[in-house]
Computed example of a mutant assay.
Amino acid sequence: MNWTAQDIPSQQGRRVLITGANSGIGFHTALELARHGAEIILPARTIEKATAAADRIKQAVPNAQIVPEVLDLADLSSVRAFAERILRLYPQPSLDLLINNAGVMAIPKRQLTPDGYERQFATNYLGPFALTARLFRAVKPVSGSRIVIVSSSANRVGRIDFENLQSERRYSPTSGAYAQSKLADSIFAIELQRRLTASHSPIIATAAHPGIAITNLQKSGPGETSLLNPTRIMTALLKPFFTHDASHAALPTLYAATAPDATPGGYYGPNGFQELKGAPAEARIPRMALDPAIAARLWQVSEQLTGIEFPIA
């Protein structure tokens, strides 16, 4: 399969909400969906960032319909306020596609959100869980509606440690907190599909990971202020062989979001060596992500931490 953005079906008349679309992979995801006719709700942490991204898309797609909004996934009060605004603006089920794309990566020192949660776990997982729960009734209950969760190949080294979800006992920026948050995303996508299937919902949940792309996510990681940082030097040397740009890295998400062949509960990533780069294809799912008992427990804990009941009916 050599699926490209040209294979995206028409999105005319479809309304898409995508988080983290003001830059990087999310921006290119939104740009391609706009090119294919979708209306885009584009939230960012400030209205200035959202508006600037909307203007960039409109430069490339003059007729694009973009709705800038404000959302900070690390702050559950912001998630609640944003969801309430969307539900007021669109009182009937009107979302065809919800893409949970926003994330942070490898924060050098443990940080807490306004709710007291570790920032990577909160931004990458709890915020998307809460947003999906609050906006689930806004998703059209019809065939073709999708909820997409963007994970990471780092989920392979992740482990859900229910005794250390907030990294309060130990904190490891990448292989610990980040990998755990992205494994939680994969578990969420699969468990969401289990519940959608059990309730006979026509909505499907899919997931994707972008492989390795050099974006703002990596540039904000540890040690990037030093020109002699070994990680930075190694990245520069290996970049042409093992990474791709943000526009290509967006393809697995776009496939999960639009391809007619994408399956309920499917997980997609690049088809190249170690899923680092390449065209979209089925990706390897970590064994822990397939465990129903872990998924059920994580769902229950997530409801408790966010204070939101999330029944699928």
Rank of each mutant, 00 (worst) to 15 (best):
A279F: 12
I285K: 09
A293F: 05
P270A: 08
A296I: 13
I294S: 01
F273L: 08
P280R: 07
P292Q: 15
D261V: 14
P270Y: 04
A259W: 05
G269I: 05
A259E: 03
E275L: 01
G265Q: 00
Y267Q: 00
M288S: 10
D261I: 11
A293T: 15
L290K: 15
D291V: 09
T263M: 06
A283G: 04
G278H: 00
Q274N: 08
G265Y: 02
I294Q: 02
P292Y: 11
A295C: 13
Y268A: 04
A279W: 07
Y267M: 03
P292D: 09
L276M: 10
A289N: 00
A281T: 11
L290F: 07
A281L: 05
G269N: 06
P260N: 10
A295H: 12
A293G: 11
P286C: 10
Y267I: 00
A293H: 12
K277I: 11
A293K: 13
G266M: 03
Y268E: 01
I285Q: 07
A281R: 14
A279I: 07
L276A: 12
L290E: 14
K277Y: 09
M288G: 07
A295E: 05
R287D: 15
G269P: 15
Y267A: 05
D261A: 13
P286W: 01
I285E: 06
A289Y: 07
P270V: 02
P264M: 05
P270K: 05
I294Y: 07
T263W: 07
P270S: 02
E275V: 07
N271C: 14
R287S: 10
D261L: 13
A293V: 09
T263D: 12
A295V: 14
L276S: 12
A279H: 06
A262M: 06
P270N: 01
Q274S: 09
I285C: 03
G265I: 09
